[in-house]
Amino acid sequence: MRFWIFTLLLLTVPFVRAQDPIRERLERSPRHQEWVAITYDGRTVHTFVVYPERDTPATAVVLIHENRGLSDWVRSVADRLAEAGYLALAPDLLSGMAPGGGRTADFPGEDAAREAIYRLPLEQVMADLDAVVDYARNLPAANGKVAVAGFCWGGAQAFRFATHRPDLAAAFVFYGTGPDDPEAVARIQCPVYGFYGGNDARVNATIPRTDSLMRAAGKTFVYEIYEGAGHAFMRRGETADTTDANRRARDTAWQRWLRLLQTL
C-alpha cells in the first residue's frame, strides 16, 4: 500500500507543477521582487515591483491589469519585462475594494473581482496610477522615464491615462478601446502603440474612430492587428491549449513591444 501511495505522489507532483507554470516562473525568478504599499490621500495601492539585474538606471513600465484584477499572469509579465532590463510595477487597482478592505486576492472569485472593477471610480483609477508613476520615477534604480501598458480593461485605462498624464514616455494598449473625446485625445503627449487580435470584433470596431481622432489631433498612434488571434491573446497565448494564432500573436507582440521599449 505504501508503495502505491508513493507512486501516486510521484505522478501527482509533476502534474500539479505543470498546471501552474506561471506561479512556478515567479517563484524561480532570480530577480528581486517585492510588494510595496504606495500611499496618497489616505489611500493605499498595493503594487508588485520587479527590478532588472543591471548596473545602470532603468526605464520603468507600469502595468495595468485586466478586468479580473492583478493576477499571477500580470505579475509574470512584470518579471519578463525585468528580465529584459526594465523596472516593472504592477499595481493592484482593486486595493481596498475587496471584502474587509482587501485586494484582488481577497475576492471570492474572478466574477466578484470583475464586478468590482466596473464599479471603480475612474478618478480613483487615474489617481492610483499617478501615485504609482510618481513612485516609479523617484526610485533610485529608475532613469526617470515611465511608460504605461495595459491589457483588456487595462488597455483602455492605459489609453485614458495617456490623456491624463502628459509626461509619459509611451502608452502600450493591448486590445483596449481608445477615448472618444477629441478634447481628451488632444491632451495626449506620448506615442500610443496598439496591439489587437484579428478575431476581436468588439474592440476592433473602435479602432477606425480612435485612429481618426489621433490623426486629426496630430498624435502618434501605431497599431498592429494579428490575424486569427482572439481577445486576450497575450495571456491566452501562453496556455497549453491555446491556438497557433494566439501563440504567434503573443510571440510577435512581445518582440514588437521590446523593440519599441528600446526606442524610449
Rank of each mutant, 00 (worst) to 15 (best):
P179E: 08
P179R: 03
D180E: 15
D180R: 08
D180K: 08
D180P: 00
D181P: 00
D181A: 09
D181K: 06
D181F: 09
P182L: 09
E183T: 06
E183K: 00
E183M: 01
A184C: 04
A184I: 03
V185H: 00
V185D: 04
R187L: 04
R187T: 03
I188F: 03
I188S: 03
Q189C: 04
Q189I: 01
Q189S: 12
Q189M: 07
Q189P: 01
C190S: 09
C190K: 05
C190W: 00
C190L: 02
C190F: 03
P191V: 01
P191I: 00
P191K: 00
V192D: 04
V192Q: 11
V192T: 14
Y193M: 02
Y193A: 01
Y193F: 15
Y193Q: 01
G194F: 02
G194N: 05
F195S: 08
F195L: 02
F195N: 08
Y196M: 10
Y196L: 10
Y196D: 09
G197T: 11
G197V: 13
G197L: 09
G197I: 09
G197N: 06
G197E: 09
G198L: 07
G198E: 03
N199T: 10
N199K: 14
N199L: 11
N199D: 15
D200H: 03
D200M: 03
D200K: 05
A201R: 07
A201Q: 10
A201N: 06
A201S: 12
R202K: 07
R202Y: 03
R202W: 01
R202F: 01
R202C: 00
R202G: 07
V203I: 15
V203A: 04
V203H: 01
V203F: 01
V203K: 03
V203Q: 02
V203W: 01
N204Y: 00
A205Q: 11
A205T: 06
A205H: 04
T206L: 04
T206N: 06
T206Q: 13
T206R: 08
I207A: 06
P208V: 09
P208K: 13
R209K: 14
R209M: 10
R209C: 05
T210D: 13
T210R: 00
D211A: 14
D211Y: 06
D211V: 05
S212N: 10
S212H: 12
S212Q: 15
S212F: 11
L213Q: 12
L213S: 11
L213H: 12
M214P: 11
M214N: 05
M214C: 13
M214Y: 09
R215T: 13
R215Q: 15
A216L: 14
A216Q: 15
A217S: 13
G218L: 12
K219C: 10
K219S: 09
T220G: 02
T220N: 05
T220K: 07
F221V: 08
F221W: 08
F221K: 09
F221C: 12
F221E: 02
F221H: 12
V222N: 14
V222C: 10
V222R: 15
V222Y: 10
V222L: 12
Y223L: 13
Y223P: 13
Y223E: 15
Y223S: 15
Y223N: 11
